[in-house]
Design a protein around this nucleic acid. Structure first.
Lengths: 195, 195
DNA sequence: TTCATGTGTCAACGTTGTTGACCCGAAGTA
DNA sequence: TACTTCGGGTCAACAACGTTGACACATGAA
């Protein structure tokens, strides 16, 4: 957990405006990433940002909205999707599994876990479509391009879920390579099917 | 939603003992499946079962424990795992996507969504290992059998998550066939890898 | 009888997300 | 100048939540 760092370029810094809003957004992102959605209260966020709990509501309207505004991830998938189609699967798996992308993994894991709340579910669906599915769809040839792109995003979300459950971040470099090779091939089978 | 039915053979009926416990368990399962974890309160469950809220706690100790006891799924994967290894991927995809297995899909979806709570996460990991990963692992030949079995379970959970997000239960029969063929092949690429 | 045990009831606790009334200083307008 | 408007910020309270402890009652064992 302590390896998670909220960088200066995190989405929180982009969407907030006043210093107070920025402080709330950063505190919220840190607490959500470490403790998850349910275990983070608005009062916790307010205390960490040293503001009144009601002020958090004034600026972000609800816990759902605060979470969605602050837990976004941006443009992480774009570079891999510009690869030659034959290698996109492996590149996506490599990227998601790389030690340096622990914060992205954590973000996706926390996001999936919060989908019990409809607003989060809608946001995650939209973000995955915008950042991954729509772009990937345009690179695909052959039938069912849209369905195949969706199934790739399903694979990625499933990997994040299980990766965290089995403590994947403790895996050795060689284990990571094997997972990347295996899961990359499984993704690739949707990008360039043999049938 | 209204298509979900809690059958007489649901796990709730097996683990409960007294009539009161059975009534609580059945009400809880129905409400959790329809409304999800967060949107179902213990008071809701108690009202549906016509008992005192405190009695729910007496019998099930906490909301987490109630959820885990009541939302289990049993032996759904066993038949497919006895297939010839060459067809397990397609069979798993077919099974999960079949209209008649809507309650299993709903169960898995709700379970994944509740993994924000650690007790649920631990239970889901254990159940997937017991019902799928350990059995599948023994059928696999070649290197990394355990890792490959885990990645298959990751694929299945991911499919459930995305299937619900895009409203898969409204898909036509031909769309289901295409998804089953495509995703089945992706699963199969982990069961019998080419490399 | 007496004791223990398990079922069920009731009122309350502490915490949660959320709201409405209020205060204040800055900015605009007459 | 005086007056209004508006957004930032504070405070106390609300209803709902998961959970607990004290209590009542029945059954069966000793």
């Amino acid at each position: 957990m302590s390896t998670i760092r909220t960088t200066a370029e995190s989405p929180a810094a982009h969407t907030a405006e006043t210093p107070t809003q920025t402080a709330i957004a950063q505190s919220a992102r840190e607490l959500f990433l470490v403790n998850g959605y349910a275990a983070t209260s608005i009062r916790d966020v307010a205390a960490a940002a040293k503001v009144d709990p009601a002020l958090v509501m004034r600026h972000f309207h609800s816990k759902d909205e605060l979470f969605v505004r602050v837990i976004g991830f941006d443009e992480h998938f774009a570079p891999q999707l510009d690869d030659p189609v034959e290698t996109i699967g492996r590149r996506l798996a490599d990227y998601l599994i790389a030690p340096k992308h622990a914060e992205l993994r954590r973000t996706l894991t926390i996001l999936v876990r919060a989908t019990d709340h409809e607003a989060v579910r809608v946001d995650l669906e939209g973000t995955m479509r915008r950042l991954l599915v729509d772009k990937l769809k345009n690179r695909l040839t052959g039938p069912d391009a849209a369905v195949r792109a969706w199934l790739v995003s399903a694979q990625l979300l499933g990997l994040m879920q299980s990766w965290d459950m089995v403590g994947g971040d403790n895996a050795s470099a060689s284990e990571r390579r094997r997972v990347a090779a295996l899961y990359g091939a499984a993704i690739q089978s949707l990008i360039t099917p043999v049938g």
